[in-house]
Design a protein around this nucleic acid. Sequence first.
DNA 1: TGTGCTCATGATATCGTGCACATGGGAACC
DNA 2: GGTTCCCATGTGCACGATATCATGAGCACA
Lengths: 354, 354
Amino acid sequence: MPEKPRRRPHPSRLPTIRDVSRLAGVSRMTVSRVIREPDRVSPDTRNRVNRAIADLGYVPDRAAGSLGSRRTGFIALILPTLTNANFAAVAHGLTEALRPADFDLLIAYTDYSLAEEERQLRNLLARRPEAIVLTGGVHARTASRLLLAAGIPVIELADLPRQPIEHAVGFSNYQAGRTAARYLLERGFSKIGAVASAPEGDVIDHRGEERIRGFEDELRLAGRPTDLVLRHGHAPVSYDHGAAAIRILMERDPRPDALFAVSDLSAVGVVLECQRLGVKVPQDLSIVGFGDFEISADINPPLTTIHVDFRALGRTTGAVLLELLSGTGRDDAPRIIDVGLHIVERASVRAATC
Amino acid sequence: MPEKPRRRPHPSRLPTIRDVSRLAGVSRMTVSRVIREPDRVSPDTRNRVNRAIADLGYVPDRAAGSLGSRRTGFIALILPTLTNANFAAVAHGLTEALRPADFDLLIAYTDYSLAEEERQLRNLLARRPEAIVLTGGVHARTASRLLLAAGIPVIELADLPRQPIEHAVGFSNYQAGRTAARYLLERGFSKIGAVASAPEGDVIDHRGEERIRGFEDELRLAGRPTDLVLRHGHAPVSYDHGAAAIRILMERDPRPDALFAVSDLSAVGVVLECQRLGVKVPQDLSIVGFGDFEISADINPPLTTIHVDFRALGRTTGAVLLELLSGTGRDDAPRIIDVGLHIVERASVRAATC
DNA sequence: TGTGCTCATGATATCGTGCACATGGGAACC
DNA sequence: GGTTCCCATGTGCACGATATCATGAGCACA
C-alpha cells in the first residue's frame, strides 16, 4: 500500500528521497538501501530506483541523514594558516586518506591566535564533526575543555606535546631545534645564531618557539652563548622576515658564522638577502632551515634544512582517524606517533673545518 | 504546562536544546530564541536560559537546525589546489568576508582535473550549500548541469569566462597574456618566447592556457612567430617546471631574448636556473611572470610580473555572495565583476633598447 | 468597560533521512 | 507437510532543531 498522501511540496524544492520512492514505486527505505547497501536490494528494484534517482537528479541530503544516523561524515581540521605550503600539504594528505571513507574535511585556520582557535573550535563543534584534528602544543584552557567535552577523538598534529590532549601525530619540534644546533656545532662553527619570530599578543608560533628553545638548550649544553638568537617580527614568518633579520644580525659584533632559521621561508629570505649584501653563503655564513619547502632546493645555494614529510603526516593522521572511528569504541588508547625528521644536506652549510 | 514526557535519552549524548529547556524551565522554542534573536526574550528568562546553556556546555546542532530552516550556512568552494598561495589567499579572503555572516566554507580541490571537479561537486551538493564558488572557465558538461539544477547562486572565480554559468568575479586571463606580450613587444624584444604546461588527460590548467593563448594572439597580431612558446610538463607548474623549460629553450636556435612564464612559480624557476647556467637576467634574457607571489619580489633580480590581488578577489566574491543571499530572491541579475590586473615592473626585464 | 494592540512564550507540525522492527513469501530442512 | 529461516521490502518513529500559529497577560485608548 502506498504511503499516506502528504501536502504537495513546494515545486521548486530539490527532490527528496520521497520523490524518488514515488517515482520508482517503492518505499523510502528501499531507496535509502539502494544508496547505502545496494546488495540488499534485488537487482530489478535497484535498477528501477537508480533510474528514478538519475531522472530526478536526486542527491541525498547528508545533514538530514546524519540526524538519524549520528554520523555526520565531517572531520574538523584547525590549522594556523592555509597559506603555508606545509600546512596545505597536511590538508591534502588528510583528504587523500579520508576521501575513500567518504569523510569531508571542515577546515578552519587561526592566524596563529589562540583566541581565534577557540572561536573556530566552538564554531566547528556546531557541525558535529566525528573527530577533531588541530596543530599540537598550546591551547586556550577553554578550548581544551571544549575538546574533552566533545566526546570525539582529538588528534594533535605536527608537534608531539609533552601532555597530549589525547592522540598525537607529529614530531618533536624541540628535538628539531637541538638537531639543528648539534649539526652546526659538529661542524665547528663558533658564532652560531638563529632567527625566529617574537610573540605578539596571543599570536605565537608555538611550534617554532619549541624549535628555538631546543636550539638554545643545545647551545647552552655545549657551553655556547645564545645572544645571537634573534626573535624579530611576528608569525607567520616569510622571506621578508629572514631578510630583515639577517640585516640586523650582520650589524652585530661578532657577526654570526652560522645560522638556524625557524622556518625555511625565513631561511630563504636570509639567503636572498645575502646575495644582495654580498655575503657569501656558505663561505661567510652557513644556514640551516626547517621545513624543506619546494623553493629551498632551488635557490642558490640550495638550502640545508630539516625535512618533515607533511603530506605523509596528513595521510598518517587520516589512517589513525579511520582506525579510531571504525573501531568498536573500545581500544581508545592514545596513539602517539612520531613521524620523525631528518636533515637534508645541501650546499648552504660550509664543510667541517676540523 | 510542561511538554509531554519522552523516553529518557542516552546518557552520554551531547546536550540538546531539550536538555537546556528542561534545566531552564522553559520551552525549546524559547531556548532557540535566546540563541538566535535574544531581544525577543525577556531579560529574566534570557539569563536563566543562558546560564543553563553554559552549565550544560550546550552547542546547537546546525545540521538539525538547517533541516527546519532550510539554511545550512555552508558555502562550497572548489579550487584546483590548496598548495598554490594565490588560491589559498582566495580562500582566506572569502572566509574573511563570510565569517561575520556566520557562513562556513566547504573547501574541495580538484588537482586541475575536470572529472575530479565533478566528483567533488556532487559530494558538496549533498551538504546543501547555499552557494557554490568555483574557478571559472571550463567545466564538465554534467558538472554544469548539476550547477544549474542546484538552484543556488554559482560564482565563477579568477577567470571571466566568455559564457559564465551565472556570476563571475575575476579577470581576463586572455587579456593578461596579451598584456604581457605587448609589454615585451613595446620594449623591442625580437625573440619572444613563453613557457606553460601541456594538457595531460583531463588535467589542464585552463586559466593558464588562456593566458598563453592571449600571449600568442598578440604575437601573431604583431606579425611575430610563436615557435618559442613552449608547452612542457603538466599542471600545477612550479620552480622545477621553469628550470626544465628554460634548459630546453636555451637549446633552441635562436635563443629567446625575452620570456613570459604562465606562472611566477615557473618564472622564479627560470630565474634561478639562469643563475646556475650563467645566463644574465635581464641582460641576456628578460622575464615576465604572472601572479606576483611573495617570492617573486625577493629573488635576484626581482621579477616583473602581472599582479592580481587574490585575497581581495576572495573578499569581493564574499561580498557579492552576501548580497545575493541576503536578497529577497529577486534581482538575481548576473554579476560580472572584473577586478583587473596590472604589471608590476621590477628588474627582470631589460630597459627598452629603442 | 470593552476593544485592540503588543509582547513574551508555548504547542504543534514539519524538515529529510536512517534505525529498529514488522511482514510476507518462498526455500530449506527434518 | 509443518517448522524454521532468510530475504526483500515496508511501517513508524526518532534525530534536534525551526516555522508558524496560538495564547494569555498587560496596557492604551476612547
